[in-house]
Amino acid sequence: MKESRFIIAPPPHMKSTTTVPWIMRQVVFALLPAAIWGVVFFGVRWALLPLLLSVLSCVGFEALDCLLFRRPLTIGDWSAVVTGMLLGLSLPPGCPFWIPIIGGGVAILLGKQMFGGLGQNIFNPALVGRAVLLISWPKIMATWHVRSPFALGVTTYPTPVDVVTSATPLGIVKAYGYTAVWETPNLLFRLFVGLVPGCIGEISALLLLLGFVYLLARGVVQWDIPLSYALGLVAIALAAGQNPLFHLFAGGAIMGACFMATDYTTSPMTPKGRVIFGFGAGALTGIIRWLGGYPEGVTFGILTMNALVPLLDRMLPRRFGVKKV
């Protein structure tokens, strides 16, 4: 057969400029304000080190896996960087150096590569990493370093610099009851802008929301899952007779709603499924906080809903040309 001079290819012959690495980089950019604030607020040694180690660990373990199993090197898609950022930002400041390394290894190997890599995993890799750390080293994962003026409740011991360990607002709720937390003056304001002890990148609701708005404007995420997540959490807060704003701004709720629950691979694709997923994850977060053993419920709330995604993906939208029955 005569070889054709022209390319023969299926339509469309136009493609959007959006690529996987571009999307992943946008998520990294969106997380930067919260990350920078974490480093400023907690200090380079307490916040930047775990964050960097987490990113390096995720990228390193992915590269190692690709080499070991002779698969094409996939770290160029930036998804490991995103996982590393998400994991690092949800670690307590001042955690030992091996915590982010082990967490990154678990997140990438157990959470992602074992399923076949990007797009194939069932559970959010960063949350898998975090959950394993939470169960294995509960004490380390609940030790919160913070500069002394911002400590809440009972502080244990002063460290050489002016850093102390402190309880987090949600920790106070779990340990001393819901009313105790309101003894902190300007609590809601401090939670909103990020002047409280907490995970490295989860303390400032404001900056996380800023990053989320950036992602919305770039068309990287949709608002349906975060909104239904918030509704689920608010519903439980109201049922518990607690302030819904407190629950939205405290702990990792904003991070979870805007960055963890919206993870492409582990959230549903169908419109109805997405709403149920978000609402369920938000509600479970609230229920764990209210009735569970952990002060925070974002991790297990989202992981539980991750498991339901294959089912939620079967909720086909209304068929074109067929009226609702």
Binding site: K15, T19, I23, G116, L118, G119, Q222, S267, T270, R319
Partner: peptide, 26 residues
């Protein structure tokens, strides 16, 4: 020839969001 590097599906949901027939192209 317009093209982009082919990845496996990352389940981003763009095809579902844009399909005018409300199908699940992925």
């Amino acid at each position: 020839n317009v093209g982009k590097p082919e990845h496996s599906c990352i389940r981003c949901g763009r095809c579902v969001l844009h399909c005018p027939m409300r199908l699940l192209p992925y």
